[in-house]
Design a protein around this nucleic acid. Sequence first.
DNA 1: GAGCCGACGTTATACGTAAAACCTAGAGGG
DNA 2: CCCTCTAGGTTTTACGTATAACGTCGGCTC
Lengths: 338, 338
Amino acid sequence: MAQGSTRPTSRDVAQAAGVSQAAVSLVLGDKWRGRVSEATAERVREAARDLGYRPNLAARNLRLGHTRTVLLVVPALTTEFFAGVYTGAARVAAEHGFGVVLYPSPEGIGPARDPFASAQAALDGVIASSMAADALTAIRGDQLPLVMLDSDPQGSLGAATVNLDIADGVRQIAEHLLSLGHRRFLHLAADVPSWTFEARARELSERLRRVPGTSIRTARAPISIEGAVAATERALSEARPRPTALVCDDDKLAAGAYKAARRLGLRIPDDVSVTGLDDLALATAIDPELTTVRLDAELFGERGMRALLAVLEGREPEGGDIPVRLVVRGSTAPPGRL
Amino acid sequence: MAQGSTRPTSRDVAQAAGVSQAAVSLVLGDKWRGRVSEATAERVREAARDLGYRPNLAARNLRLGHTRTVLLVVPALTTEFFAGVYTGAARVAAEHGFGVVLYPSPEGIGPARDPFASAQAALDGVIASSMAADALTAIRGDQLPLVMLDSDPQGSLGAATVNLDIADGVRQIAEHLLSLGHRRFLHLAADVPSWTFEARARELSERLRRVPGTSIRTARAPISIEGAVAATERALSEARPRPTALVCDDDKLAAGAYKAARRLGLRIPDDVSVTGLDDLALATAIDPELTTVRLDAELFGERGMRALLAVLEGREPEGGDIPVRLVVRGSTAPPGRL
DNA sequence: GAGCCGACGTTATACGTAAAACCTAGAGGG
DNA sequence: CCCTCTAGGTTTTACGTATAACGTCGGCTC
């Protein structure tokens, strides 16, 4: 299948070095101390180098019964957030001799088909990020050790979960806007059936309900700039009196909200304050810079990987949500008079 | 390693169904017509379902001698461009029964260590996107079939290459700005040793040299918004007379240039025109919307995968660069009077 | 009624590796 | 001189799958 000549095996190396295949395995596996002479070991290493030998992973995995490879399932990679999650997970994995394979679910955050039909690598475990419940059951089909990221601790069928404390982030946003004096809110919600977005809506209305005189409207939009522009423009021109604060489910939606506000002749933050969530590069690219909640994606990935390693080793994964932090920038200010 | 009880094998299924292991393999591999009765086949399928049997991929890969899995190596996933490349590659792969494993090179666009130390999946081939030459040699170490994306056709050591016609994109940008009347250019170049960026610089100066009276300066910046801000601010305040057109190596750099211009009190496009390259979501999030060159990332991934399939089957991969298209938006206009 | 064939399986084998179990020669002790 | 020990290997086996090669039993043909 390669280029006519087939890849060399450990047996070929053995023959070239004049030893048995077992000796090759011992030397290359670094288990030869006291079993093979230094001179022979060197001969083996040289033969392996000359032939360009690489072990056949499929055979090794079969023999060993594990692959030291885990799958990270993420929604479509349209923001750098999941790149950060991967980076963190891969770093921890590497420290433990594991590899991480990335599988961007084609259906985005919605139901996934069977990740394993596509990512055919043999796996030791799975980290699934921001997946809907039905995708989860597909994954559970292969009874692999599983860790869920950013998902409902209740509905996770007993799998370990690791979460960012987004509820607290939403609370911080609400505090910030309330203390600036805002009372009329518009929530620009991601139109995606996902636990994490439902939780954001719940937390926001929960917090505002406790303050007399506040009102909150909701607009739904797909997570894309154009979608957000349309939804925001509609909601902002219909609502009377106009909301003074626009709370967006993520930074991308906020970027759309900027454009909608501009089209309506509204200035940010003078006429309307806007907040995001994620702290992507986008947040500082737009003008004014966006007040948002910073999520530590790398730490998130690290904790996810650590949890999976714990499960693999039969330990109890450590609990506790990852704290998040409000970053105040230029898109929020006290409401203008009327 | 799983949960105490080990995963069922085809032999377990055979025992449960009262047949031989071979029969199980035939039935589940859909090769049983005329070899096994319908009744027996159904018994086998039922047993497999009851036990929750999943074939051991490592064993299958070993037996078959291939994995139907290819690796896609990309620089850090900080833009959605490579997400598109993946999507296109994965779609074509799926049509041919292949899976794609994504490996974001930790060193970004620079030299990669050994992708296979991390992505331990057993592989049939590799698609490497935008990799430096030294990373290439590491990959070539495993004599796997290889396709290079966005890389120097000369320096690719005989591997198949697939490229976007970025040179033409740069030409289109130059034409556009020249025809608007611009003569003093600043090239905001990505400070990354990569063929693709060198080619952009070469093409731009090549094109401008042919027009008398043009001048071009170059500023280098890492591919990040802050980096671009600093480099642009410096270059724009030093250069006298000030350039009227700012050609950026990609959209992200352009976003940084916007901020720098704003700090210097320059309006876009009235005081300075700006162009990008990529057409990311970012391009329409900033104000004014960015004139840029659209790259069809998905088509790029598709073509890359098709080329790899051709190599795997011993066919000649089809050549020809993928065309790109200038998208004119609000960030370019005729130069103001001095 | 000998020969053949199709239906329905089973047995045996190989893929490449890791490692347990085994072998052999020489050194050293008693 | 016999026994044991150690260095330095080799032989063998198992991992789980796919498939080539091999039965076996009726029924049909001529």
